[in-house]
Simulated scan of single mutants.
Amino acid sequence: MPAPINAFKAALAKGDMQYGCWAGFADAYATEVLASARFDWLVIDGEHAPNDLRSITAQLAVLSSKHSHPVVRLPMGEDWAIKQVLDAGAQTLLIPMVESADQACALVRAMRYPPHGIRGSGAALARASNFSTIPDYIATANAQMCLVVQVETMDGIAALDEILKVEGVDGVFIGPSDLAADMGHMGDSSAAPVARTIKDALARIAASDKAAGILALDHGTAQTYADWGAQFLAVGIDVVMLAQTARATMAKWRDEG
């Protein structure tokens, strides 16, 4: 029995549009609710949300039978952290602040077993192998690993063409907020120089054999990014959705009171 097919990786390879959402509550119950919307992918965020290995593992478990594919974002690309979340069952990682092809190559190797990488082969006790019930896991897992690197600084933009040549990188995700900050437009990813940089980057990614991704919280911006070449598009953040809906509900009652 081989490792499970990574449907998200397969969809990116086919060029299918994939709509996603951020899962930031760091709670399996909330993520299960979010999955009921049938987003194609959900980011279990370990960079800006209070997730740890146990909360990530719990969310991977509740998503295992759902349409929504889990994408785990680590706060960094350390080999030991990658090994832990892969053993917990993650197949797709989103790694922030990638600024060189060498960095991307190191991430690819961290996600793969030898001879193509350095991932430790102790899968016998891991959730990834369904606790040793997938006998061919180690032999077949490499083919199902999906790596998405975040390019979100001008150094990363400068290295983009080299990053796009790295075999084993499946997608490049542009981080509009950090990119805007790095360009001197804190909090304004719509500033003309930032928008031009995003448009050029998405076009270059889309013209490569990699998939282009980005996040947008309003429909118009998201549609613009899709027109510019984004193939996997995050269109919401669960924490923001709850906050906005709660505030709007209370504001309505205050206005009517």
Rank of each mutant, 00 (worst) to 15 (best):
T31L: 03
T31W: 00
E32G: 13
V33P: 03
L34C: 14
R38Y: 10
R38S: 15
W41H: 14
A49K: 09
N51K: 08
D52V: 10
R54K: 10
S55E: 04
S55N: 03
I56T: 15
V62G: 05
S65P: 00
S68W: 09
S68R: 04
H69R: 12
V72M: 09
V72N: 08
V72E: 06
D79F: 03
W80S: 12
W80H: 13
W80K: 07
A81E: 14
I82M: 07
V85Q: 02
V85P: 05
A88R: 06
Q91N: 07
L94N: 03
P96C: 07
M97P: 02
E99H: 01
A101M: 02
A101S: 11
L107A: 05
L107P: 07
V108M: 09
M111G: 01
Y113P: 05
H116Q: 14
G117R: 00
G120M: 01
A124I: 11
A128K: 10
A128L: 11
S132K: 14
S132D: 15
S132Y: 11
Y137G: 13
T140A: 05
A141R: 11
A141G: 07
Q144K: 10
M145P: 09
L147W: 11
V148G: 14
V148I: 15
V149Q: 10
E152R: 01
E152W: 00
T153S: 14
